[in-house]
């Protein structure tokens, strides 16, 4: 059943390519705008690279989150899922997981490109990818809770950012720090463990909180 759910989510996604491609376009746009904005006299913008990379990843994730439940909410499918499905929890878990696949995992795979564009040295790139791989699940799982609560408002975007961005702060701190240390060649396993820990905590509470949040939002209609 889990596999069936997974494939149905993937099929849904393949019919809605904009949901995958638009955030990615935004990601590259953000990196470009930053790199152009930095004065060219600064030889390497590497010192800001970790912070900027994670910041843009956070924003990309936030943009993608807005569409996570929007369509299903508007056409009433969400209500069906919550009432009719045997375990709505599993459906929601799969939805968030697929969201992570097309934001977090995809960003991780594209990280070498982004890293080079931002001036991160090549020897640090594997660590950058690992950090993104470990840190982005937290963004999806925490963010889904906020998306669930704000899906009922027609202009929920700002509210979503307000609710979710403060909770993203630890990921930004450890994520940016890992990249800086990797560039400098300092041992960075502690931060990686922390990223994994935060993702585990988010994974434990996120799906439950999202289910509760969706139940609240459905009643708002």
């Amino acid at each position: 059943m889990i596999l069936r759910l997974f494939f149905s989510e993937l099929r849904l996604l393949s019919r809605n390519k904009a949901q995958v491609l638009n955030p990615l376009a935004f990601l590259f746009l953000g990196v470009m705008l930053f790199s152009v904005g930095v004065p060219s006299t600064v030889q390497s913008n590497g010192i800001y690279a970790g912070a900027v990379l994670w910041f843009i990843v956070l924003l990309t994730n936030l943009l993608a989150l807005d569409g996570l439940f929007r369509r299903d909410y508007d056409n009433g499918v969400l209500e069906q899922i919550l009432c009719a499905s045997e375990i709505p929890f599993m459906v929601i878990l799969m939805r968030i997981f697929v969201h992570w696949l097309h934001t977090g995992l995809l960003i991780t795979l594209l990280a070498p490109l982004l890293g080079l564009a931002l001036g991160i040295e090549a020897h640090a790139l594997p660590v950058v990818m690992l950090a993104l791989l470990l840190g982005t699940p937290a963004l999806s799982f925490i963010g889904a809770t906020g998306a669930a609560l704000t899906v009922g408002f027609s202009r929920g975007g700002v509210l979503l950012a307000l609710l979710v961005l403060p909770l993203f702060l630890p990921v930004l701190i450890f994520g940016a720090n890992v990249i800086n240390d990797a560039v400098a060649g300092i041992d960075n396993t502690a931060q990686l463990y922390w990223l994994a820990f935060i993702s585990m905590v988010a994974f434990t509470i996120g799906p439950f909180a999202t289910t509760v949040g969706l139940k609240i939002s459905v009643q708002l209609q």
């Binding site: 609560l149 702060l169 701190i173 909180a209 609240i216 009643q219």
Partner: peptide
């Protein structure tokens, strides 16, 4: 709606409270 408002803010408060130690530790670190 007063009931939903209470439940929504309670949910956010719970998630926030779980995150407070992590946030505190991360910024101290």
């Amino acid at each position: 709606d007063i009931t939903l408002r209470g439940r929504a803010s309670a949910l956010v408060a719970i998630v926030g409270t779980i995150n407070i130690p992590i946030i505190k530790y991360s910024v101290d670190w």
